[in-house]
Structure formats: structure tokens, C-alpha cells
Design a protein around this nucleic acid. Structure first.
Lengths: 140, 140
DNA sequence: CAGAATCCACCAGGATACTG
DNA sequence: CAGTATCCTGGTGGATTCTG
């Protein structure tokens, strides 16, 4: 009577994805790592807003959720590198879609969200930082 | 020297999108409305987890962010209908991507998130509800 | 450079009850 | 059916400090 026997849920997936991406910096972290910005110090430089502690916490969550892998080099000074897992990599297109939508509607969104002082500063500085990185990466 | 003069930020868009989608039920709400489940009572029936108050709050935010429009019919009993705006509609593909990714990796994600008792019940009941809706909508 | 331990403030979101 | 007012708490994420 209806096309699919198991009426694939409409919302479950949404909730699961939300769960994985739940955390102020998670999408950005995944995105950064996907760009080979894989060392904590690099990430901290990239995202002026995030704290060491929060960075660790959220990376840890991404790790336990199987989105990223952590490689620790027992050196001095210590060195740590994160990389996307298979499934983590499969999330990038989604994050990319989010990013592109936000970019495409930036002016409108900035206006509309203007009242909300939350992200204003943060996101702007991040923009600059990222722009910088882009240049560096393109040139280097 | 580098391909684009204005090195389109990588993260701004992400933050803006996060801002709009920030709220436990926002993606689901947009999704529901996109499916013509537009009346508050319908939505409440659909999402067993959400409260009247929270529903109102988040719908209000979506409204002030320009994602949805609210139409009030001054009747008795009162009748209210929400609809997506142009830009709100443009967000659906993104939400759809989130949803599909979650669905595609459901078994893995459920396992991995299992420790986290947060959503367990909620998302399951939502699945059922939604499945139901699908059937109803396909048949009706 | 990486990261663990505390401490804390804030707010999102849930429960409840009441009005039109 | 829709909406509002209170109240309350759990968790997120920020600041700080200290180790290897």
C-alpha cells in the first residue's frame, strides 16, 4: 500500500546527527581536521574562541563517537594529531552544506541575528583567521 | 596569487548556520513544517518530547530569524499555521542531508551513542511517530 | 605542547498551572 | 487549540591553575 515497508524514519537520523554534532565547536573541529589542521595547537590558533579544556572535551567526544582518531607521539615536546575516521569523513559533506548555506545567506543572517550578541565577535575573528589560513595554505 | 580575492571564510557560514539551527528541536521543526505539518497541535503530536512552552520559544526564534512565518486565524478555537519562508525552504536540503547521514549510519551511531542515555527513548518514539505520519500521509 | 583538575555562571529546556 | 508565567535543574562551556 505504501512504497517502503519500513517507513524510514524522518527524524531519527536528524537526532542522531544532532547528537554527534552537538557541541559548540564540533562542526568546526571536524571541518578543520578535514583540512589537515590536525594538531591541537593549530586548532587553538585557528579558533580563538575555544579553550584548551573545551577543545579537549569536544575532541574526546568526537573520538568516542568514532568521528576522529587521535594519534599521540610520545615525544618531547609532545605531539598529537587528529584525523577523520571513515564515517567522520562522510560527515564532511553535510558540514559543508551547512557552511555553504550560511555563507550564501551571510548578509541576511548577520542582520537577522544581529540582536543576538553571542557570536558576533567570535565568528568575525574566526572568519579572518580562516581566510588567513586559506591564503597560507594556498600559497604555501 | 590565490584563486578568490575574497577568501570566503570557511567557518563563518558554519557558525551562522549553527546559530539558526541552535535549539534542540529546530531542525525537526523546520523539517516538520516543510512536510506540511504546520499546526502547533500537529507538531506536538509528532514530537512527543517537546513541550508547549519550548515549542513556542523555538518557533518564535525561527520566526525572528526569518525561517518561518506564522499565520494566526482569529477564531474559536484558535488556529495557527506555520510555513517556511523562502530562505527557510532553502535550509531544508541541509537538514535533509543531516537526516540522511544519520539514517545511513543509524546502527553505528546508536551503538556508539548508547552510553549516552539522553536521546534514547525520545528519538525512538519519534521514529515511530514519524513512521506513522509517513504512512498516513502516503495513504491519505 | 598537551592535558587534567577545579570552580562557576549561565541558560536551554523541562514541569506545572493558568488564561483566552 | 493556542499562549503565557513561574520555577527549577542539568549540563555546557568558559576561566584558572597545575603537571609531564
Amino acid at each position: 500500500m505504501y512504497e517502503r515497508k519500513t517507513p524510514l524514519s524522518i527524524d531519527c537520523g536528524l537526532h542522531l546527527t544532532r547528537e554527534v554534532l552537538n557541541g559548540k565547536w564540533k562542526p568546526a573541529l571536524l571541518y578543520a581536521i578535514s583540512m589537515d589542521i590536525k594538531r591541537p595547537s593549530e586548532i587553538l590558533r585557528l579558533l580563538p574562541g575555544v579553550t584548551r579544556r573545551v577543545l579537549n572535551v569536544q575532541l574526546k567526544e568526537l573520538e568516542t563517537h568514532g568521528m576522529v582518531e587521535k594519534k599521540t607521539y610520545p615525544q618531547l615536546p609532545p605531539k598529537v594529531e587528529y584525523s577523520l575516521t571513515e564515517i567522520g569523513r562522510s560527515l564532511i559533506p553535510v558540514i559543508d552544506a551547512m557552511n555553504q548555506w550560511g555563507d550564501a545567506n551571510r548578509s541576511f543572517l548577520e542582520t537577522v541575528i544581529a540582536q543576538d550578541p553571542k557570536i558576533g565577535e567570535t565568528s568575525k575573528s574566526i572568519c579572518l583567521k580562516y581566510g588567513h589560513m586559506l591564503v597560507e595554505r594556498k600559497i604555501g
